[in-house]
Design a protein around this nucleic acid. Structure first.
Length: 487
DNA sequence: AAAAAAG
């Protein structure tokens, strides 16, 4: 392993990194930093969770040097607000031993603080396109001196949804500049398009050629969702002992909200992030998940790219993503920085063609998703769920839909799952005899209410609100013993 | 077609 100092990184940046326990460099960093430092334009491609941010971030910070003059000299554009926050934090960390100032510019937040920081002379801007264009249009953000430019998740930034915004932004940038584009996925046509914004870029692929396209340390499991109750199976996965942080992806905002309500009703400690939530609630969710205060994150594809959370052990695709790129990015929330992870995907009947596409593109060699059913032993074996938990869970009471006037009692009756888990990890008696602590229901209700459904701002009354969703809940008769209909 | 991104 090469140290950062050996790559030519300034001592104060090396110290900032080591203060965070970062000593050794990753392959993408070894390849891009020595080129980025002298100003080479780079298209940098490396798998998820292998250190791309520092691959471009260190050269950006170092090239600005110790120039104290105020004004924007570097611009880093990212596709989501949460990623803007994260990249801002990473870059800010790199500058901790020098005076370079960094600001995050993104929507859903008050203008005031962001404008103040710009007027105070911020030198590095990390932001999302909408707010950047907004502030540039108001002459509150001057990009004409941004000689360091990065598109993170570059293929996303150059796809149809973002391209017009990106073109507007590039029009405001100086012609002579250092431009870097990074992503785990870089389709050929996008590389061609990207060259329009760069001068003689080098395309760096930090991928071992005989490795596959996917991360070797992520175990990919794919099941057809036909003959099983997805919510039920996901609940059981979430009950597993030894499961760490888990991200559950859905296709729509509504589905995310619904699943959060469902799991919340079962007593799981969950947070959600999707575009129908207030920005404040989104950031609260991410902070709780990152800190480990909440172990389950329900998300739309807003969280598919770039989000770096330590020790995510499982990614669950409640709905299969539309294409192989999204699949790769979603799965890549686990198995980061050399750790292992499991990605579980449920394929609905109408989505079989999507699996065919992803399977072919990523060369999984598994043309059909595995057949499984709600209490299938092999499913839980695959997932590494301990036998004891499995046995107990398969007999978990699944009757319900008690309609009560006061939501408290029926809710308590249903929330056996995490109680079980907690008791067992304490090594105590079987949980069936244990009653739910009184405060449990109330605590959870408060959490649910705090997650963006109503944020007190009077807006954001998106469909699929918590309360109606809860009332709507009804479960079919329990699948008796899960008599499989394996095809 | 959905999600994201300004409000």
């Amino acid at each position: 392993m090469t140290t950062f100092a050996e790559l030519g990184v300034d001592q104060d940046i090396v110290e900032a990194l080591s203060a965070r326990g970062i000593i050794d460099s990753f392959p993408i960093q070894e390849q891009t930093i020595p080129l980025g430092l002298p100003g080479q334009d780079i298209i940098g491609q490396a798998k998820t969770g292998t250190g791309k941010t520092f691959g471009f971030g260190i050269p950006v910070v170092q090239r600005l040097g110790l120039d104290p003059s105020p004004g924007v000299k570097a611009l880093i554009v990212v596709p989501t607000r949460e990623l803007a926050v994260q990249v801002y934090e990473d870059i800010d960390m790199l500058t901790q031993n020098r005076s370079t100032s960094v600001v995050a510019i993104y929507g859903g937040k008050a203008y005031e603080g962001q404008i103040e920081q710009l007027q105070a002379g911020a030198q590095i801007v990390v932001g999302t396109p909408g707010r950047l264009i907004d502030l540039a249009g108001q002459r509150l953000l001057d990009l004409s001196g941004a000689v360091e430019v990065v598109l993170d998740e570059a293929d996303k930034m150059l796809d149809l949804g973002f391209l017009p915004d990106i073109e507007k932004i590039f029009q405001k940038l100086p012609a002579v500049r250092h431009t870097q584009l990074f992503s785990a996925t870089m389709p050929g046509p996008i590389v061609t398009l990207a060259r329009r914004f760069m001068s003689n870029p080098i395309h760096i692929r930090a991928n071992d050629p005989d490795e596959g396209l996917t991360q070797a340390n992520i175990n990919h499991l794919v099941y057809r969702a036909h003959s099983l109750d997805k919510d039920e199976v996901i609940a059981r996965i979430l009950q597993a002992e030894g499961r760490g942080k888990t991200v559950v992806f859905t296709r729509t905002k509504r589905a995310a909200q619904k699943l959060m309500d469902e799991l919340g009703d079962r007593g799981f400690s969950v947070v959600a992030v999707h575009g129908d939530m207030s920005q404040e609630a989104r950031e609260r969710s991410m902070a709780a998940f990152k800190a480990g205060k909440k172990e389950i994150l329900i998300a739309t594809d807003v969280a598919a790219r770039g989000i770096d959370v330590d020790d995510v052990t499982h990614v669950i695709n409640h709905t299969i993503p539309d294409d192989e790129k999204t699949y790769l990015h979603r799965a890549g929330r686990t198995g980061r920085a050399g750790k292992t992870g499991i990605a579980v995907t449920f394929v609905d009947w109408e989505d079989l063609h999507k699996w065919a596409l992803i399977n072919r593109a990523l060369e999984f060699g598994q043309p059909e998703p595995r057949e499984t059913y709600s209490s299938s032993p092999h499913l839980f074996e695959d997932l590494g769920i301990p036998a004891g938990v499995r046995g107990r869970l398969s007999t978990a009471p699944r009757t319900e839909t008690v309609k009560t006037a006061a939501g408290g009692s029926d809710r308590a009756a249903r929330s056996d799952a995490p109680r079980r888990r907690r008791r067992r990890s304490e090594g105590s008696a079987p949980a069936d005899a244990v009653s739910v602590p009184a405060e449990h229901g109330a605590e959870r209700a408060a959490e649910t209410d705090g997650q963006g459904t109503h944020d007190g701002s009077g807006k954001g009354h998106h469909d699929g609100n918590a309360a109606p969703a809860r009332r709507r809940r009804r479960r079919r008769a329990p699948r008796t013993g899960g008599a499989p209909t394996v095809g």
